[in-house]
Structure formats: structure tokens, C-alpha cells
Nucleic acid binder design. Structure first.
Lengths: 195, 195
DNA sequence: CAGAACGTTCAAAGGTTTTTGAAACCTCAG
DNA sequence: CTGAGGTTTCAAAAACCTTTGAACGTTCTG
């Protein structure tokens, strides 16, 4: 084998490493890996890059680059810029990560929590109705109602937390903790205030 | 068509709806959908259920049920219980959602953030080294170093936030906001304190 | 205005993850 | 000890998502 590295890792490319690391991170957060990779390449580049550059560095086909850039632009994570002498499109990264994160949370997580809250509300209503009209055993229905009520409480607190987060207010997870705890000791308090 | 519903949705099964809703939620959070579905069925059931019951309600094959239950038990989301007269295994849901969430955050998100922080640290070091030994243009290297430094800052703050969250302490997102903001106005402050 | 370079779209190929059915494995009653 | 019922494992199949190359638009240049 060729001369072994003495002290510093050879073949450890910092840029490459960061690109892949952020890629993994984004993948974990529910995005395609390439979104994170592409954004990172731009974030680490002092100059705007053309899609060919990006494709080269990330080993992506032109179509993949185009698709990924499109998605990133929808999230506002990448901006298109013109470079005077060049006919091609150049791109730069949005550098305010806070802005990116809050936008995603607003558009994606918050919408999801809201949908879920709505669904739980409907379920709660339908269940009460079903109990009144006599379908469904009373005991099981009451149990379910309580459990669903607990989920509703949780989702409303979650919604509040997310809302506070995106507007930069302090959060107190103990609120969730109280709601998300075991429910054995639950007293028969009635319905709660809606979402 | 048969008599249209007058006021209440027929064919809206509350249990079914909640099961699917939580399933979606879990899927979004990086788990397989069935994990959320199965947990919910147990959560909404007053009695422990056997795997056959579960398979029936969720339309899952026995092997799928077994696999899913195994995974849920690893997360502590489901417990196995014995029922006197019955030879089969019965299962119940962990009802403390707070406990579930914090465990997942601890084991999964926190580990991820730590790994990323470590990687960024390595990259930072390698980059400084590369710059000293003269590989890599000085200008570009300095730029990257600054940007990576910013990412490191962010990840260390994120780690702190997650840590605070799982131990139920109040959080202040403004800390992230400050670090995650645009970096244009950045002054040439030196390196920061490590992770 | 024609040609060339670049960007985008989309159906199909490719890869990966999820689901399944069959077989192995346990446990307990008889 | 044997057999029935229940559970787990695992390789193969199915479903799913991603990536690609070719065709189509668009925009600028000569």
C-alpha cells in the first residue's frame, strides 16, 4: 500500500464531509438528502455557482440538479442570481438558517399539527354522537373519549409550542410534560376548551 | 345512490380516523406509519389486546404485527402483559407520551446532533490544517472556515436546546435565532468555544 | 431569424424499504 | 413426550421513492 498517513487524515475532504453531514441531517428531518447537500455546497462557496458546477461537485445529473434547486427555491433556501458576463443561472444559499427553519416549521409541522387537531376534534364529536345514539358500548366509548381528549390536549399544547417557537418566544416544555404524562391519576374533569 | 347523510357523517369511524391520523404523524416524525397505528389501537383500547386482535383491526399480517410490536417495545411504547386464562401474549400502550417523546429525542435526535457536531469539528480542524500547509487557496479556506464555524455554533446551541427540552427546562429560541441569523454582519471574532 | 446553449419536464429504469408467507421455534396441555 | 397454537425470523416479492436520459422549451448570440 502507498505511504500511510502520518498524523493528519489524508483523504478527508472537509467540504465533502460537511456536505454529507448536512445531507444526513436534512434527511433525518424529512427532506431528501440532496436538498441538504446542495444547499451546503452553496453555503460553503464564496461565489454563486452555476448548475453545472453543482452537478460536478455533488455528482448529480443536470436534471437532478434542476429538480433539487427548484424545490430548494420553493423553500426559499436558495436564490437565483444573474452574473453579468454569463448566460447561465447562478445560485446562492440563503444564509439565515433561522429563517429557513421557521419557515419550514410554519409551513410543514404547524400545518400537520393543525390537521391532526382538527381530525381529533371530529373524532371526538363523532364519538360523542355515536354514544348518544346508542351505537357503541357506553363503557368503551367513554374510555375512548377520554383518551382522545388527552390527545387533543396534547396537540393543542404542541401547537402553542410550535407557534411560540416560530415567533421566537420562550417555551416551557413542562407544559407538555404535564399534559403528556401518564393519565392514570386523571380526574373526571369535563371537556376542555377547544384548539 | 342510497339515502344521503343528513347531518352526521356516516362511515366515519372515530377510532379508525385517530389511528390513521397518529400514523401519519409518526410517519412524519421519521417512524414507519404502522408504529403509530399500532400504538394508537392499544392506546384507545380499555383492555390489553392480543396480536390477532391487532392484526384484524389494522389489516396487518401476523408477521408485520410481530415486527412492529418488537420495534415498539424497543422504544418502550408498548408493554407485554399476560392474561390469566389465555396462552397468547397481550399488549398495552405506554400512556405517558411525554416519556415516549423524550426517550426518542434523547436516543435519536440528540445522538444525531452530537455526531454532526463532531463531524463539523473535524472538518474545521482539517480545514485549518489544510490552510496552514498551503493546500487550498487562503481566501476560500478562510471563507469556509467561517461558515463552518457558524454551523458549529448552531449545532452546539441546538444540542443545548434539545438537552434542555428532554430535562424539562425552559427554552429560549432566541438563542438559536441569534446564531442562525444571516451572517453578513459578522465580525471577525476568532474561533468559539467547542461543543 | 436560425442555431446553440441552457434549463425543465416526464416517463421509464433503478434502487431501497416495506410487506409477506413459509418455515422454524417455542410453550404448554394432554 | 407429542401435538396444537402462538410467535418469530427471514428470504423473496411487492410497493415505493429516487434518479436518469431523452425530448421539449426558452433565451440569447451571431
Amino acid at each position: 500500500m502507498p505511504a500511510p498517513p502520518i498524523h493528519v487524515d489524508a483523504d478527508f475532504d472537509p467540504e465533502q464531509a460537511v456536505v454529507e453531514g448536512v445531507g444526513r441531517l436534512m434527511e433525518f428531518w424529512g427532506f431528501r438528502r440532496h436538498l441538504g447537500r446542495l444547499w451546503t455546497v452553496l453555503y460553503l462557496s464564496p461565489e454563486p455557482l452555476a448548475s453545472t458546477d453543482i452537478g460536478d461537485r455533488l455528482q448529480l445529473s443536470p436534471s437532478a440538479v434542476s429538480l433539487t434547486i427548484g424545490e430548494l427555491m420553493q423553500w426559499g433556501a436558495v436564490k437565483k442570481t444573474k452574473v453579468p458576463g454569463d448566460r447561465r443561472d447562478f445560485y446562492t444559499a440563503e444564509t439565515s438558517i433561522w429563517r429557513l427553519v421557521t419557515r419550514v416549521v410554519r409551513q410543514r409541522e404547524l400545518a400537520l399539527v393543525r390537521d391532526t387537531a382538527e381530525l381529533l376534534e371530529r373524532a371526538s364529536g363523532a364519538l360523542a354522537e355515536a354514544r348518544r345514539t346508542g351505537r357503541l358500548g357506553a363503557a368503551e366509548a367513554r374510555f375512548m373519549e377520554r383518551r382522545i381528549g388527552r390527545l387533543r390536549l396534547l396537540s393543542s399544547v404542541g401547537e402553542k409550542l410550535l407557534g411560540a417557537f416560530v415567533s421566537g418566544m420562550p417555551l416551557d416544555p413542562n407544559e407538555v410534560r404535564a399534559v403528556g404524562g401518564r393519565e392514570d391519576a386523571e380526574d373526571a374533569r369535563g371537556a376542555h376548551d377547544g384548539a
